[in-house]
Design a protein around this nucleic acid. Structure first.
Length: 786
DNA sequence: AGGTTAAGTGACC
DNA sequence: GTTCGGTCACTTAACCT
């Protein structure tokens, strides 16, 4: 009879409830009115006894224990506490209410069953068959026909086959999805040049400005013609307008008779603009999309699901309507509330958002600040109202699942492969990180992560492997003489040196180069790897490299600004009209080259510059990349401001799978703005990050500077500096450099990163301030390297 | 007080 | 017969200094 009822109910259901994480999740569109019991029975029978199933049971019990703890905690809450909590909640509610923003028109667009729809479009035979995209072990998505059988995304193919023996499973074809995605994004950018893609098939738009202008548009600008199969250009024979998603799928353009040449005029309202956008998407790609229109992202996201597929829904910007909408909304529908949160809330008798708002005081006592603040936002129908697309990537990883692997040699070998792949990805984006994490999943599906934070940022295969291998060794040793029986291994690098950390170094080098010291702040260095640079004159790799560094990931903007008459501090060559990136590259190369005993290649900057300026190579893949980039709205903000045409291309291998994900929730809590606005005071950032000039210098610098930054030692003259002020310190370093001590410095400190033992010396120099544990690990790594 | 580490949740398909 | 993914961000809790 009270809030406990939900919990009690689940307790008494016994077995059935124990499987809440295995049972069919019919949260998604197209899954209504299914015979859940029958489907769940099949899923259960197929899963039962498997290692996966056993592990899910274990996790389920862990969640149940969490809930029990929570209930105990709840029992200890006094009326007094509750009252006080309520006051706090009320106060915050007031503030939030005061700052409620209803003025923006936010749209969330989501392609319907995207991968499946693409495959159906390109293979008409699939049209009226239940099909899914993926493999026997995992499905990415399914068409609506298959959903009727309970087949859905994230379901293993073999179970799907049990549910639907006639299911056709098509392997994924990401290149195709990326291409279609690019088409769709072109349309998005016309309604909001700053739209935020969340994945290949999904994006948020702020169409407030568009609507403002649209009001004054003549009808001709809002008129779109239906294109038939011949004039459509895109796509194969289209006997129908779009793939059949659902038998009763609403026709997307009811006013069209289907006759060629017919046109439709769209109105000026938000609904009409979005309907127009969806119409154009369908015309262009033969695929349908659904959309939600609301005053904030959280609501827009919920709305886009409401009339899926091929529909849209709008919440007008009125508080009353918003609250009315939220009242009956199940919490699970909100992005960020997953099955565990759902279950925890259900234990407290909270299923919909109305109940959520009723229990806020209690929740504030049971959950962490961030959690209950998030709940409060949801219960008030609040969400982020500004769409920021830029944000810095926090980590990069790669992992692989495979058949049982017990042989240690094989495991090390795989580990190296992973490091190799990861290093490539990191270098493609010019990232270096300090923390290396190894992820292992054994044959019982138990996941372990083991991390180690180095004193310096790394990005090469050797460096990453040196750490990862060691972490792996510890795990292997811990179970020996039994072997580790793995089914997955992954490697991650995080703790990237941030743009803020890099800036002072640019100031430093700019101060060195331009004695007046004007400007500088806007430059962000592109840290390249010694490895990729060493290939500079060795063929395809080079061209690729030169043309690709402009991958537009948030943390990484290349300055293409032209600086006139730069003089290389190493070889003294004067370079004209070189952008900073090329210049940095040159210096790296020079430093390396002179240490390795000058190969002539590293001085070949004019050639590199020529390549930068010249037309892109004719290689088909690259011209494709260029073409798409010229339309890619993501390039907008970072367009080069100069005559040098460095193509700004999104990585064409990883595309949006690596688009950083930020839920509305993150933003609500203010974290996002904190992150993006945060300007770390220079003094607080660790010394090494701030005083490096290029990454080649960086490692050397670390050797001589104390890891905790209590005293700073000049990397050039090796004299400890009395100041803690990094600006002053940088100035000193600049001066030192100016005095051409550099040459001497270079001879006594051969740059690292080119030999077989990367950064070994810098590791050695760093151990002092570490605790024992880390010291030991560090030593192990050193041994490994040696 | 703040960084690291480990584990888990949630998101996308 | 066998078979349950890959990538990223965030939170939390425990631990360490």
């Amino acid at each position: 009879v009270d809030v406990q009822s939900g919990y009690m109910a689940s307790h008494h259901q016994g077995g059935a409830d124990l499987l809440s994480r295995i049972a069919l999740n019919d949260n998604k569109a197209g899954m209504e009115g299914l015979d859940r019991d029958k489907i769940n029975k099949i899923i259960l029978e197929t899963s039962k006894g498997s290692k996966f199933y056993e592990n899910e049971l274990k996790k389920e019990q862990q969640v149940n224990q969490r809930i029990e703890k929570m209930m105990e905690q709840k029992a200890r809450i006094t009326k007094e506490q509750l009252k006080q909590a309520q006051a706090e909640v009320d106060k915050l509610t007031c503030e939030l209410e005061r700052s409620r923003e209803l003025g923006r028109v936010i749209v969330h667009v989501d392609m319907d069953a995207f991968y499946a729809a693409v495959e159906m479009r390109d293979c008409p035979e699939l049209k009226d068959k239940p099909m899914a995209v993926g493999s026997m072990s995992m499905l990415s998505t399914s068409n609506y026909h298959a959903r009727r059988f309970g087949v859905r995304a994230a379901m293993p193919g073999f179970i799907a086959k049990k549910l639907c023996p006639n299911l056709v499973i098509v392997p994924t074809n990401f290149d195709k999805y990326r291409a279609v995605s690019a088409q769709v994004r072109e349309i998005f950018s016309e309604y909001d040049p700053h739209f935020m893609p969340m994945s290949l098939d999904e994006a948020y738009l702020d169409i407030t400005e568009h609507l403002e202008q649209r009001k004054h548009w003549p009808e001709t600008m809002r008129t779109y013609h239906i294109c038939d199969a011949k004039t459509g250009g895109r796509g194969p024979q289209r006997d129908e307008l779009s793939p059949v998603l659902f038998e009763d799928s609403p026709s997307s353009s009811p006013s069209l008779s289907g006759a060629d040449g017919k046109a439709e005029v769209f109105g000026t309202s938000a609904e009409e603009a979005v309907r127009e956008m969806r119409f154009r998407i369908e015309q262009k790609t033969s695929l349908t999309a659904s959309a939600g229109i609301a005053p904030n992202m959280m609501l827009a996201k919920v709305c886009s699901d409401k009339n899926k597929p091929n529909g849209q829904y709008r919440i007008p910007p009125e508080r009353q309507v918003v609250m009315e909408f939220m009242k009956d909304l199940p919490v699970r529908k909100v992005s960020g509330v997953g099955k565990v949160t759902e279950k925890m809330l259900a234990a407290l008798g909270i299923v919909n958002c109305d109940q959520l708002s009723q229990q806020m005081a209690l929740l504030s006592l049971l959950f962490s600040g961030t959690s209950w603040h998030n709940f409060l936002h949801i219960s008030l129908g609040l969400g982020s109202t500004c769409i920021e697309r830029d944000s810095e990537r926090k980590s990069m990883s790669t992992e692989r699942t495979f058949g049982e692997m017990s042989d240690a040699e094989e495991q090390y070998s795989l580990c190296r492969d992973l490091c190799h792949d990861l290093a490539q990805d990191l270098q493609r984006e010019g990232l270096k990180g300090k923390t290396v994490t190894l992820k292992l999943k054994n044959v019982k599906f138990e996941v372990k992560t083991r991390a180690f934070t180095l004193q310096y940022a790394v990005c090469t295969e050797e460096e990453i492997f040196a750490a990862a291998k060691d972490l792996l060794k510890v795990e292997i040793d811990s179970v020996s003489p039994q072997p580790l029986k793995l089914r997955l291994m992954g490697v991650r690098v995080s703790g990237f040196i941030s743009a803020e950390d890099k800036k002072p170094l640019q100031r430093s080098i700019m101060g060195f180069l331009q004695k007046d010291g004007s400007d500088s702040g806007s430059f962000t260095q592109y840290t390249t790897s010694a490895k990729s640079l060493s290939n500079t004159n060795s063929g395809t790799d080079t061209t690729c490299y030169v043309n690709k560094p402009a991958v537009l990931k948030p943390s990484f903007k290349i300055s293409t600004q032209v600086l006139q008459f730069l003089t290389c501090p190493v070889c003294n060559t004067e370079m004209k009209d070189v952008n900073l990136t090329a210049f940095n590259n040159h210096i790296d190369e020079c430093l390396k080259g002179s240490a390795v005993d000058n190969e002539p290649t590293h001085l070949d900057v004019p050639k590199e510059q020529k390549e930068l300026n010249s037309k892109p190579p004719a290689s088909s893949s690259e011209s494709r990349a260029l073409k798409s980039s010229s339309h890619d709205p993501s390039c907008n903000e970072e367009k080069p401001s100069t005559s040098i045409s460095v193509p700004l291309v999104e990585t064409d291998e990883d595309g949006d799978f690596k688009t950083p994900f930020f839920s509305h929730r993150t933003k609500i809590n203010g974290k996002r703005s904190v992150i993006s606005k945060k300007k770390m005071p220079v003094c607080e950032s660790s010394s090494k990050a701030s005083l490096t000039t290029t990454h080649n210098l960086e490692a050397v610098t670390e050797m001589s500077s104390d890891s905790k930054g209590s005293s700073l030692t000049c990397p050039v003259c090796s004299q400890p500096q009395s100041t803690d002020d990094l600006t002053l310190f940088n100035r000193h370093v600049d001066m030192c450099l100016n005095q051409e001590v550099l040459l001497e410095f270079r001879e006594s400190h051969p740059p690292v990163g080119h030999s077989d033992e990367p950064a070994l010396k810098s590791v050695r120099g760093q151990c002092k301030n570490k605790n024992n544990n880390q010291q030991q690990q560090q030593k192990r790594i050193i041994n490994t390297l040696v």
